Amino acid sequence: MAAQVEHLASNMEQEISRPLAYFPPTVWGCDFASLPLFNSEIESYIKKVEVLKEKVKDMLMSSNKDLVKNIEFINLLCRLGISYHFENEIEEQLNHIFNVVLDDINYDYDLYNITLLFRVLRQHGYKISCNVFKKFKDRDGKFNKAISNDVKGILSLYEASFVSMREDILDEAIAFARPLLESLAMQSSPHLAKHINDALSMPFHRGLPRVEARKFIDFYEEEESHNETLLKFAKLDYNRVQLLHKQELGVVSRWWKELDLAKGLPYVRDRIAEGFFQSAGVQFEPDFALSRILLTKCIQILALVDDTYDSYVVFLGVEKLAGVKEFKWLETNPKLVEASKFFGRLLNDMVALKDEEKEGHCLAGNCYVKEYGVSKEKAMEELRKMCEMHGRI
């Protein structure tokens, strides 16, 4: 197969000159194909995890006696990357909170607890009203300055504002909280400052679950009030999942190495590790190992096709697709599709602008730099703002 594709590419290159993008080698610099198919260390982790899992489950069930403690504990499980162990229990508790408890409370809580309750419920699909934030506004309809020094509450408000469904009050919350957090970060301890800056860079629920869990485990460990059992469980489970992912990466790396397409097609990205990283970002849980392997293979093949498209401006199967109802709908360029394309294009160009410049390729960031005469950092900041606007469909 590699020889046939190489021959086709060679013929096409002789017919017409194209600005090929020769990507640098993968930054990982190691051969993941040599990773073992089985790691005996995993069995040890599994046994330890199962013992602690029952203890953490008991802690979760006992926390439902108090609404605030219950929501805080569920939030901890999510941020430590271990909530997938207790999906049924969490769903049952949140369902009870939303359908029973909320009807009987007057939201007489502080900023932190209200915003945490709002965010956790929204992230799990419950349509709690954003009117809960009105109590923190003054007579002029602006967020009350009295809450400005509540670091914990302001950070929680900022994170909660990103589960907006295009609601004005949450847009106002971002505008109110962000400059405060930037200022508070400079006045806080290095431990808290890093946590705040991480949130400013990327709200945790928008990041890759494994990366966000790793960062929060470090943060939680330095908290004086941390629960030792919960922390130990999070660490063991993280390491267990990491070992499983390494096994899977070895599988897909051997598959890619055996295909040997990168050698015959020098313009193709050799990015099997990055492809697996994306797959793990979609579904990191151990039960989805086969899904990750198959998705990684699809991503790598699609990258190959995409790089070929970029190099050789190709349309495949258009005649077959032209009569399909869904394709006709796509041709109308509805708002959903338009926003998704714009969002995806900007994100792609931001990565390209930051990491690898494509010779002969037009990037939105470079265009912004040339048109407005600003630095790349400023261009990145403006592209990020555009992404925020188009990320809310």
Rank of each mutant, 00 (worst) to 15 (best):
S63I: 05
E338I: 01
G141W: 03
S189G: 03
W255G: 07
V49R: 14
Y107S: 04
S311W: 01
F133V: 03
C298P: 04
N95R: 11
A289N: 05
N95S: 15
F315G: 04
D287M: 05
L76D: 15
G250P: 03
K152M: 13
K152V: 11
P203H: 01
E50W: 11
L363R: 03
P266H: 14
L192C: 05
P203R: 01
L249C: 05
H390Q: 12
Y112W: 14
L363Q: 02
I393A: 08
V101T: 13
V163K: 05
L117K: 08
S62I: 14
I272S: 03
D287C: 03
Y84V: 00
L157C: 04
K194A: 08
L249V: 06
L8V: 14
H96I: 08
R392C: 15
R214Y: 04
S62W: 09
A322D: 09
I97P: 07
E87R: 13
R178V: 11
P286I: 06
E91A: 07
N70F: 02
E172V: 10
S148E: 15
A193L: 01
A303L: 15
R166W: 07
A289M: 10
I16D: 04
L231W: 10
F133K: 01
P266L: 09
I74N: 00
L200F: 10
L244I: 10
E377Q: 04
D287E: 14
A175G: 04
I301Y: 10
M12P: 00
E182G: 04
Y112T: 08
F73W: 08
C367D: 09
G264M: 06
N239S: 10
R178H: 08
V351N: 11
V374D: 08
R214E: 01
R122H: 06
I217C: 08
Y107V: 01
Q187V: 04
S253R: 05
L231F: 13
L52A: 03
A322W: 08
A262Y: 04
F162H: 06
D198M: 13
K325L: 13
M386L: 12
T115N: 07
E359L: 10
V101I: 14
I293V: 11
F98K: 12
K145C: 13
E212M: 15
M186A: 12
M380D: 02
M380E: 06
V313T: 05
H191V: 12
A213I: 12
R214D: 02
V314N: 10
V351Y: 11
I42Q: 07
E371M: 08
E248S: 00
K65N: 05
A177H: 00
R210L: 13
W255A: 15
R166H: 14
L20M: 02
T115P: 06
E285H: 06
E371V: 13
K246Y: 12
M186S: 10
M1F: 00
C367K: 06
Y45I: 03
T26D: 10
L236R: 12
K135P: 03
R269T: 00
M61I: 13
K246E: 15
